[in-house]
Design a protein around this nucleic acid. Structure first.
Lengths: 336, 336
DNA sequence: TGGCGTGATGCTAGCGCTAACATAATGGCT
DNA sequence: AGCCATTATGTTAGCGCTAGCATCACGCCA
């Protein structure tokens, strides 16, 4: 029984045990061990038990790197987001990860940090791991990135937007129409001096265009646009920098809440309903936080986790509709 | 020049081009192509140029799966968090990813969803991809998970806590002492009826123990403890469920802000300083949001991204101190 | 009784790459 | 001229696993 004293996980050379070491110990060929791991039904119960025993004794952990090379299936998905911290994209990653994990897929996560050079670099790094699909927020920033993805010949899912010429599949919503919806609502509410605060990333910019176009179409003067740095909380866009404005659309809820805190300091925030607000504020994202603060935040609600789950579905089912509009909803609360 | 018309990324069989196809086209051996990719300095400039040309023509993307198998280096790190959505752990993932990405490491992300069974499963899945280290929030929930990690013989970094018997390295802070610090502060402020709201995960529970022990040591009666479900916002722990309480420590800022919104509805929230609050509220995490709401949130500040960066350092440098206490800071604002 | 389907297991080759060790070609030195 | 350090390139033998095809034993049927 001395072999029972072998330290688990340690083969003859102190390295991780391999299939064939397990096979030797169980007195079978390595392909049989492979079958026990992947298609146990094909192996006779007694043989299987013997192999399972040997695997446990040795502390065998399959090497998926070798398996992937041999089978040309990595069971992994590359996921690219601008940023994962404090962001609604985390919901999307959670959603797709929850859907893919039970299927045996691993998520390889990369961040572009809204930097085109870094995006191309991580895209190449991702592809060199031969994922079975790429799911990304938005579209590649450069032609090079786009080319890389097209040549990869794997499902590519762009999310959080509805690009006109997607590489492959799309799960998102119409950012332009979101801007339109907010402007429409504010105009109907009687607001006249609109402003937009947010980043100048592609999706934020599309929201701005919709917002501006609708304001102009309604006979209002061109709204002001304050481009915030990613690090800014939104409170930096204090009312002082937007005098005379009576309604603000923030590209995301964090900016909206930050701006509201600026309004509060300026004495321009009421605990009453939207009609009582000197300055209406509408966010985007529908963070739970928005319902907890006072006044509660009106916002464009988007389901980040549904985007993630839909993206997972799109990468799994190569046929069928490749463009899914998850829509958005204008949720009106007390801020505007 | 017909070869220039070859569709990039498509080899003879429509499959991705390999090293040796590039080699053939450049008229060199495949090892030379490998060197151009990995150690370009070792290759003569003209040869290098020829190889680079061939790589571009063919749209060659290195296959790291094969490279990893051959070199026994995957350049990947397994990262396990309870959840990535709406959580402070996202900062940690961002921090470590930012540090590791430039070094060529990929992050394989998995979520346990606070489920021990799922944790063991994803841990095994992670290890089968042969990452060069595992960075996780907390410690394995089961003996089995712990065994798996010990046998992997790679750096293991546990974070967000300071376990007594870590598997390998640790980057975190003392959750028990955080609870103590909050209780001390509340007692000094003259609060007498304390309560704790939050989850019953290991770290939350440690905060509770510190909080309770210090309250008892100060002669107060045992604080109440309300265990919230992960889905709860904290507002469900309305004051109605905690009558007579004059101070609450919430295990995280989200719960704290939710509870404050409950207090507001009950008319128990003031815009003034902590001394004016009928019920003091202290959170943990120092979300930016806490500074934007009114009253501003007092909290235990923890640097999630520093934890991530430190964890990355610990996995890279195998020598030296393996237990890093990043500490925490009680940040006093207006809520308590 | 011979043929053959079925279930269980094994053999062989190779996935695309790299480590480790050759081998060539060059030039400076004694 | 001969030697050897240096630079540039190549050869060989796997890494650990799986696909695809054997092989073999069995038992059932005509």
């Amino acid at each position: 029984m001395s072999s029972d004293l072998t330290e688990p996980g340690t083969g003859p050379s102190g390295a991780a045990p391999t299939l064939s070491e397990v096979a030797k110990r169980a007195g079978v060929s390595s392909i049989t061990v492979s079958r026990v791991v992947r298609m146990p039904d094909l192996v006779a119960p007694e043989t299987r038990a013997r192999v399972e025993r040997a695997m446990r004794d040795l502390g065998y952990v399959p090497n998926l790197v070798a398996g992937a090379l041999a089978s040309a299936r990595t069971n992994s998905v590359g996921v690219l987001v601008p940023t994962i911290a404090n962001s609604i994209f985390a919901d999307t990653v959670q959603g797709l990860s929850d859907k893919l994990e039970p299927l045996g897929f691993s998520v390889i996560l990369a961040q572009s940090r809204y930097d085109a050079v870094r995006e191309d670099r991580v895209l190449a790094a991702l592809l060199s791991r031969r994922p079975e699909a790429i799911i990304m927020v938005g579209s590649p920033a450069t032609e090079e990135g786009s080319r890389l993805l097209r040549n990869a010949r794997i499902p590519i899912v762009e999310t959080w937007d509805l690009p006109a010429n997607p590489i492959d599949a799309v799960a998102g919503f119409d950012n332009y129409q979101a801007g339109v919806a907010v402007a429409k609502h504010l105009v109907a509410q009687g607001r006249r001096q609109l402003a937009f605060i947010g980043g100048d990333d592609p999706r934020g910019t599309r929201r701005w265009f919709g917002f501006r176009d609708e304001a102009l179409a309604s006979g209002l003067s061109e709204p002001r646009r304050l481009i915030l740095d990613r690090k800014d909380s939104g409170s930096v866009a204090a009312h002082a920098r937007l005098p005379d404005v009576d309604a603000v659309f923030a590209a995301n809820d964090a900016h909206a809440i930050g701006f509201m805190s600026g309004l509060r300091k300026a004495g321009l925030l009421r605990d009453g309903p939207a009609s009582a607000q000197p300055v209406a504020v509408i966010g985007l994202g529908d963070l739970e936080m928005g319902q907890l603060i006072s006044p509660t935040l009106s916002t464009i609600s988007v389901h980040g986790d549904a985007i993630g789950r839909t993206a997972a579905t799109l990468m799994l089912e190569r046929g069928g509709e490749r463009r899914i509009d998850l829509g958005f909803e204008l949720v009106l609360r007390d801020s505007g």
